[in-house]
């Protein structure tokens, strides 16, 4: 039985989970996971945020064929705007000290505006322009974050960003991690469900047609540009949301959270899992992040190799894995070769 056939609708499940998660936050209930599992929860939080970025990217690339090489730009903009709007006295940066919901909304809105600007200027051009422009924008955003120190705090980042979940659970430790996983997990399920519904509908059929042949789709009566634009903005919005959630989780924003590694990880996860398969891409992300976690443990057992050397070996292994996938299974583990038009 396939996941899609289960009598559970991810959109509803996500909405219910979100309500439960928020109810849990404000209840006197308290969960303390064993200390040994904390690292799993930490990686889990990051996985759920990257999953949000990835469901947007998969809608853009997997379903519509839009090559966005800069999802981290929207992730970073969402995060930094949220941080700047909400931080109290962030040490040599701008902090407006507004309530966190305002920061969350502002982060999403600015990510959407950036997405709309890039989309409006680039999506009418040939496909490869989008790839180049998004890659460049991601570098520009990162450059601005590091250099406009008076606003962003430069390489130190912004401190004293509110931590709404920590504040509700009474601060710190395992309970907070657990609650965070619950809330972010609910949001990830919700957006997975929404985007899955969108792609498994006549709307998604238009997206797949655009991926196959834009011109034919246009001559069959579809406003191709509008679909590409809207899908691009949706992806930007969830990436912005994920960025804002990250800074509210960390209580800070720093350039290190928003490096090109984010783009690399979500792209590799998508390609390994199978672009266009909403569930498969998340499986791919789990594989790549699980691999990183497993090798971290391994490094602790192998003291002869320095962490720096180990990081390089890990990158080589990931590169090798990607090459094997692309050569022998170009549709990814759960992807559909017919849908993607590749021969495996």
């Amino acid at each position: 039985m396939k996941f899609e056939d289960l009598p559970v609708d991810a959109t509803r499940a996500g909405a219910v989970l979100l309500v439960l998660a928020v109810a849990f936050l404000f209840s006197p209930l308290f969960v303390r996971p064993p200390a040994a599992t904390l690292v799993l929860f930490e990686v889990g939080v990051l996985f759920l945020l990257y999953a949000l970025v990835l469901v947007g990217l998969n809608l853009q690339f997997g379903h519509t064929g839009l090559v966005n090489f800069g999802p981290v730009a929207f992730f970073a903009v969402g995060g930094y705007v949220a941080a700047i709007v909400t931080a109290n006295d962030p040490y040599g940066a701008v902090g407006l000290g507004l309530p966190w919901p305002v920061g969350l909304a502002a982060g999403v809105v600015v990510a959407v505006v950036l997405g709309a600007l890039i989309g409006a200027s680039t999506l009418r051009l040939r496909d490869d322009f989008l790839a180049i422009v998004t890659l460049a924008v991601a570098e520009i955003v990162h450059g601005l974050i590091v250099t406009v120190r008076d606003v962003t705090g430069g390489s130190n980042g912004l401190q004293n960003v509110p931590r709404p979940i920590a504040a509700t659970t009474g601060g710190g430790g395992a309970g907070e991690l657990f609650a965070t996983v619950l809330v972010f997990g609910a949001l990830a399920v919700l957006f997975y469900g929404l985007f899955h519904r969108l792609s498994a509908s006549p709307y998604g059929r238009v997206l797949r047609a655009i991926r196959a042949d834009e011109q034919v789709t246009e001559t069959l009566g579809k406003r191709v540009f509008r679909y590409k634009f809207v899908v691009f903005v949706y992806g930007a919005a969830v990436a912005g949301l994920a960025g804002a959630l990250l800074v509210f989780y960390n209580g800070a924003a720093a350039p290190g959270f928003f490096t090109i590694n984010v783009t690399v990880i979500v792209w590799i996860g998508m390609l390994i899992g199978g672009a266009g398969n909403d569930r498969g891409v998340l499986g791919g992300l789990a594989i790549i992040m699980g691999f990183q976690l497993a090798t971290r443990f391994l490094n602790e057992q192998l003291p002869v190799i320095t962490p720096d050397q180990f990081a390089s070996v890990r990158l080589m292994l990931i590169g090798l894995l990607l090459m094997v996938i692309i050569k022998y299974r170009p549709e990814g583990i759960w992807g559909d070769a017919d849908e993607l038009g590749v021969e495996s």
Partner: peptide, 10 residues
């Protein structure tokens, strides 16, 4: 069904 709201709301 080619409009997002109808698509998501089925």
């Amino acid at each position: 069904g080619e409009r997002a709201w109808h698509a998501v709301g089925r």
